[in-house]
Simulated assay, not measured.
Amino acid sequence: MRVPLFDMTRQYETLKEELLGAVDAVFSSGRVIMGENVKAFEREMADYLGVKHAIGVANGSDALYIAVRSLGIKSGDFVITTAFTFFATASCITRNGATPIFVDIDERTFNIDLDQVESVLENHPSRERIKAVIPVHLFGRTVDLERLKRIRDKYGVRIVEDCAQSVGSTWRFSDGTVKKSGSVGNISTLSFFPTKNLGAHGDAGMILTNDDDLAEFCRIFRVHGARVKYFHEIEGINSRLDEVQAAILRVKLRRLDEYHRRRIELARLYNELFERHGLTDRIVCPPVGKDFECVFHQYVIRVKNGHRDRLKSYLESHGVETAIYYPLGLHRQRCFSHLPAVKLEKTDRACAEVLALPMFPELREEEVEYVVECIRDYFEGECAC
């Protein structure tokens, strides 16, 4: 059996008629740049996430860059973030001239350790120059939004939520209020890269905020800094959400919660099968709740005792695709070697142990069963040796 890590074609087959109709309507209208679908999708996403403004841009990396730029962060400033994330989370800081301060992760969730964030905010020798914190809701699991809000209010730092992997994930506050990731930060960002839970058929991204001034800056900055065409108020860039991608994303948004529920079902099945086969002493499974606290953009296990790379090779030889997110923390990347060295033991350990298994809504239960059986067979063979 061949089991893909992600297969876009299965979803396309179920949506083909509707997607082609939406795309044809765009082409037939002749309005292919910043048309009605972009405007409608921005409204629909703002409503879905419970924010005031949603600004479509070309991709998630641009969204992060523009979001940081909107806060006036510049050379001499510092921004706290995680080293266990995709490159764009940190490059949006350095591209704006500022310096990232990398902190470690919570080993259970892989998300940024908020205890360490507060420690840096209180003890860093240049703490008055720390302007923002960028938490990442990694693998679809929400960072504690209530605590993020407290940190923002207590220390006066801006919060930039990186929601590239968490669109639609939620957090329940102590008073029972439920909010979606991206709705608490001063400004937040989304990616609609094709593999995401809400994926375009190409590049696309979005900026979210409840701040009118930040929203206005982002809207102007994404179109060469011009509120009115050919009249440039600031030196902006060209980063527009494509009309065709907006039309596609509108079709998929209507099914997003359904996709989330399926991902959670599959994650629960993985966990049940690993326990049934007695594998929980060999691997660490991600916790599965009953709500959208984690929407499982990826299903990531930790493989103990140095078996990760051999297990990955074994699975590939048996037709199972896997991936490593991430093999090297940002604090160890060559491009950041000029920064002060920092010791992040939990991040380093995660880089050596994590393995992402197949996860997408159209994944079949028999495929999950096969993946787990292959992992069982691998460890039984290791024990026999």
Rank of each mutant, 00 (worst) to 15 (best):
S183V: 02
N111I: 01
V372M: 15
W171P: 01
A356D: 04
I112L: 13
T209P: 02
A58C: 09
P287H: 11
D213L: 15
I375K: 13
A88H: 05
A350T: 05
H307G: 00
F139N: 10
E122A: 10
E316S: 07
A384D: 13
I101M: 15
G236Q: 06
I112W: 07
D7F: 12
A90Y: 05
R2S: 14
S61P: 06
I187F: 04
V368R: 03
V26C: 09
G236H: 02
P100V: 05
R332F: 03
D24C: 14
F139R: 07
A341F: 03
K149V: 14
F360S: 07
R276G: 09
R172L: 04
Y65L: 04
K16I: 09
R349D: 15
G176D: 04
V3T: 13
F139Y: 15
K179D: 01
N197R: 13
F86I: 04
I101S: 07
A356F: 06
H137Q: 01
Q298K: 05
N59L: 06
Q116E: 13
F110D: 04
C294R: 13
R152G: 02
V368L: 11
E235C: 10
D203A: 05
Q11L: 08
V136Y: 08
I112A: 14
Q165W: 01
R150S: 12
R262D: 05
E380P: 04
L266V: 06
Y259N: 00
Y48A: 15
V295A: 14
R255D: 01
V57H: 04
L311H: 04
Q333D: 07
M45D: 03
T94D: 08
D144H: 10
L138K: 11
V295G: 11
T347H: 08
I93N: 01
R129S: 13
Q165E: 08
T177D: 00
D144L: 11
S28M: 14
L5T: 14
E316M: 12
V228A: 10
L148P: 00
V143S: 02
R332D: 09
